[in-house]
Computed example of a mutant assay.
Amino acid sequence: MIHYKNKEEIELMRKSASVLSAALEAVAKVLKPGMTTLEVDNLVDQFIREQGAVPSFKDYRGFPKSCCISVNDEVVHGIPNAYALKDGDIVSVDVGVYLNGFHADSAYTFAIGNVRKEVLDLMTATKAALYKGIEKAVAGNRVGDIAYAIQEHAEKERGYGVVRELVGHGLGRQLHEDPQVPNYGKRGSGPMMKEGLVIAIEPMVNLGTKDVAYMDDGWTVATRDEQPSVHYEHTVAVMKGKADVLSSFAGIEAAERANPALNANY
């Protein structure tokens, strides 16, 4: 069942998303080679709790940490650990925030130091695909219109592998609600979207093939060919005429540009 939100509920979700975006901005300010993914997780956990919110992922279905942190060929759901980030790595930081009874969900992929141009191009294309999908998140369109726009840009135009096994989703009082929001599909297919639907749109795009494998830890998903994967995600409210993006990359991107450890790619 799809749960539509009224204006007041959407504003509460915007507050959750604001805390989440600020947490990712805090990561962008300090991320550097030598920092462990567990240190990133601790930073985000502390930041969220200091805002009076709760990390949505902690203990969700048994997940042990507050962030999903996925490095290089890891697609999503990486468990933070003692791995120290290295020059040339890319790292996706996926975060959920629960505040005032509502969740928000967003992810951002960072390039550490000097990253190969083909990987930077993958990052650019995946972020662009996210916004292509967001453009279709308007009342009267169907979920398949979002899916088609993402796949068309990332896979058909750029030749990358769009992951099939993992999809975006509705969210609100629950972290995962209906409908599922795939990153591939046909225009005009799937549920029709109405004003008040809030969804997480999150393309997961691989440099090589679309195929993935599940790791022995029970959570981490990686590319089967061990090529890099990129993940970006926004919390989006469906509206008439134009989608309302509740999360924001603006502060993250500004902090990224100001951080010398990340700035080599600009």
Rank of each mutant, 00 (worst) to 15 (best):
E74K: 13
E177Y: 05
L38G: 07
R14V: 09
F57G: 07
G88T: 00
C67G: 06
A254S: 13
G190D: 00
I201G: 00
G251M: 02
S66M: 09
N42I: 14
E256C: 09
D178N: 13
D216N: 14
I252L: 05
T124D: 15
P80H: 08
I69M: 11
T235A: 07
H3V: 14
F102V: 14
I199N: 00
T109L: 04
E226T: 14
I90W: 04
I90G: 02
A28E: 06
E11F: 03
A84C: 12
A255M: 03
P203D: 06
F63D: 04
L262N: 06
V138C: 05
G144F: 01
T124P: 09
A264R: 13
D45Q: 08
G140Y: 03
Y148T: 03
C68I: 10
Y131P: 07
V162Q: 04
G196Q: 05
Q180H: 12
E226G: 14
L43M: 08
K186N: 11
G140P: 03
I69V: 14
Q51H: 13
K132H: 09
I90L: 05
M35V: 10
A154T: 00
H169C: 12
V76M: 12
K127E: 08
V119Q: 01
L122I: 01
R116S: 14
R61K: 15
D217N: 05
A84S: 14
V27L: 04
D225I: 06
S66I: 07
T36Y: 01
M239R: 14
K65L: 11
A53F: 06
P64W: 07
Q151L: 12
V19K: 02
A250T: 15
D244N: 14
I69Q: 06
N263I: 12
E226S: 15
A149T: 09
A255K: 02
H169W: 08
D178L: 12
V115S: 00
E165V: 11
G168E: 03
G241N: 06
E226H: 15
A149R: 08
Y4T: 05
A26T: 10
D59A: 15
G101Q: 10
R224V: 08
H234D: 10
L31Y: 06
H77D: 10
V119E: 02
D145Y: 02
A213I: 12
D145A: 02
Q151I: 12
K136V: 08
R61E: 15
G208N: 12
T209K: 10
S106G: 12
G144H: 02
K86L: 14
K132D: 07
P191R: 00
E9N: 09
D145M: 01
D41S: 07
I146V: 06
N206V: 07
Y160G: 03
R164E: 13
V91T: 02
E39Q: 11
V238R: 04
L207N: 02
R116H: 14
V71N: 05
I79F: 04
R158E: 09
D225T: 05
N100T: 06
P64V: 11
M204G: 04
R158N: 09
S248Q: 09
R173A: 13
V230R: 07
K7S: 15
S229M: 06
G159V: 10
R61L: 15
A125P: 01
D94A: 12
V167C: 13
Y184Q: 03
P179C: 05
G218E: 06
I10S: 05
A107E: 07
A147E: 02
A261P: 00
A82D: 15
N114K: 15
L175E: 10
A17T: 03
R142M: 11
E233P: 07
L207R: 01
